[in-house]
């Protein structure tokens, strides 16, 4: 099954207010298409990181819509996120954080996108017609 959800940024609202809708959308798809539990968790995580990233970091300038599409495959889901905000390539934003640093030197910056890039497969980013389009695949199992 293939379904889309549109998220419209609300001026002044906290980015995290978009989260319950994402969670509900993923859970609805998961139930309809009988996803494995780990696929649900991975899809949720990928979407949370991507969408909170888009809704924060000053990226809301000119942003009026984020469209999330989920397309269930065999033990996998293809996730497409299209937004009309400022051009931003999450695959080449900055290098992944150094995950080998000692405790007191670690910072959290960039970890969300690092999780997405590591956990997802077949990631593709395009900027066309004034829109950011990211496609990736989340897979069940190890």
């Amino acid at each position: 099954m293939r379904r889309s959800l549109n998220i419209t940024p609300v001026p002044g609202a906290a980015a995290a207010e978009a989260l319950p809708r994402i969670v509900a959308f993923v859970e609805e798809m998961a139930e309809l298409d009988d996803w494995a539990p780990d696929l649900v968790l991975r899809s949720n995580l990928i979407l949370e990181e991507l969408i909170l990233n888009t809704l924060t970091h000053g990226r809301t300038s000119g942003l009026s819509d984020i469209e999330v599409t989920l397309d269930t495959g065999v033990d996998s889901v293809t996730i497409t996120v299209v937004d009309d905000g400022a051009e931003f390539d999450p695959l080449n934003d900055k290098p992944s954080p150094d995950t080998e640093l000692p405790l007191q030197e670690r910072s959290i910056g960039g970890l969300g996108l690092h999780l997405v890039r590591t956990m997802a497969e077949d990631l593709e980013y395009q900027h066309a017609d004034g829109k950011n389009r990211l496609t990736l695949v989340a897979r069940a199992g190890a």
């Binding site: 968790l41 995580l45 949370e48 990181e49 670690r106 959290i108 969300g112 999780l115």
Partner: peptide, 16 residues
């Protein structure tokens, strides 16, 4: 059963 980078940030601050 679920933790995102927002939660990891909290664990990092507590651990530090």
């Amino acid at each position: 059963d679920y933790i995102s980078s927002a939660g990891l940030r909290v664990l990092l601050l507590v651990a530090q």
